[in-house]
Write a protein that binds this DNA or RNA. Structure first.
Lengths: 227, 227
DNA sequence: CGCATTGTTGACAAAGTTCAATTTGCGTGG
DNA sequence: CCACGCAAATTGAACTTTGTCAACAATGCG
């Protein structure tokens, strides 16, 4: 039992460049190709050989997988700073485990596989950070999985909405404004747009939020939390 | 059995020691503490600080998580060769993401964190393999998650049974024999022992398998595959 | 032999999904 | 500026799947 030092922040969102000195960060970013994408563009496709590493600079990306029946299984939304395509780092080639698609207009850093592998040798912190990021995704997916099993559609929807507010919400005088459709929200919470509509209506009636087409304004996040 | 430069198996179950020369493997294993555990012993607990890396030598371990309501969310069963506790490899300490418990009597290799971190520096292949293993777990959990969303209880149960057959089954003249209770099978497939019982009975009536207490003998795996 | 564990079966309930019908909101082009 | 048309949202009702619970049967161990 290592009686380690002090309480650190619970989860200080580690990313690829955490703990790397600024001049090295610059070298690393310069080795990437900056790319701009329109909404609905595919970025990578699950099952294809991993050839690039991506870091999202601006915009929102959805990471998902298609089942053999064609249903979409959403793993989560990626926001600026998030890194994906890390399977490329392995010495022997592996497939991407899911597909990534731009939801909004996006700017990305894109590294070619060999380039990134060399960088990871030059800057070992990069390798460690990659490992940490993959572990973080594993934890996130574990959370998502546990939630799907043990929470009701209502709780999942509330969680999805609150996390969206935290990650992509615009703070407004009347509350936090989130740009999302019922259908997207349903996907995030693993339910249908119908269920999403019913629950949102209920919360609206309770005064916890208000709705516009493609938009939700959360007035009282607390009132979504429990029950 | 190095076998480089030859058609490799599609998913040759990469593990911690893959591609490491035998004498180095010996050094690595010698650095571990061999440990023997009785059934139902906890090995590590989710949320605790990661201090050790484990490799299962013999036996079966379940890896799971408890929700705040106390339900158990099973991520999977670990079989000999599987490695866990890899969060220990990070430079700054992280928590184990789930709990591990011995199902059968088990033998384990256990490495103390600092020891393993030094080994990973000495043998870089060890670091790469760790990364690969974590990616593999991510893929496995993604599969599991997708299955939970898109498959019926029946299909999940069939999958669980078939995979058990593959991984832990005893080949017998009458088919593959799997040691498992209805309840364990239900847990694996994310359903109840009642549903498991009903489906097994149906398959038994169809002649696809037979049952003993705590045991299933699969006669015709094909007939479980689709519907 | 007795007892605990495991398994079976039925009746019922809960949660969400599905589908169809309708309404609302909003940009576009006349 | 209005009317059109389409995408998004709403709502009700039936339906499906699976979980829950209770009662009971069987298996096998000590």
């Amino acid at each position: 039992m290592t009686g380690t030092g002090q309480a650190r922040k619970p989860d200080a969102t580690p990313t690829l460049l955490t703990g790397i000195p600024e001049r090295d960060v610059n070298s690393i970013l310069e080795a990437a190709t900056p790319t701009k994408l329109l909404p609905n563009r595919m970025i990578l496709t699950g099952g294809e050989q991993a050839t690039h590493v991506f870091m999202l600079k601006t915009g929102i990306v959805k990471y998902y997988r298609l089942t053999h029946t064609g249903d979409e299984v959403l793993f989560g939304w990626l926001v600026p700073g998030n890194v994906f395509g890390l399977a490329s780092l392995l010495s022997s080639p592996v497939a991407y485990l899911g597909s990534a698609m731009a939801i909004t207009e996006c700017q990305l850093y894109v590294w070619e596989r060999d380039r990134m592998r060399k960088l990871a040798q030059t800057y070992p912190q990069l390798a460690e950070n990659s490992f940490r990021v993959v572990l973080k995704y594993l934890t996130a997916l574990a959370d998502r999985h546990a939630g799907l099993i043990s929470l009701s559609a209502e709780q999942r929807l509330a969680d999805a909405l609150l996390e969206l507010g935290r990650r992509t919400g615009q703070v407004h005088s009347a509350g936090v404004e989130v740009e999302i459709t019922n259908e997207q929200l349903g996907d995030l919470a693993h339910t249908t747009s119908f269920t999403a509509s019913r629950l949102l209506s209920r919360w609206k009636r309770a005064g916890a939020l208000s709705k516009k087409r493609g938009k939700v304004i959360i007035h009282t996040p607390e009132s979504l939390v429990s029950d």
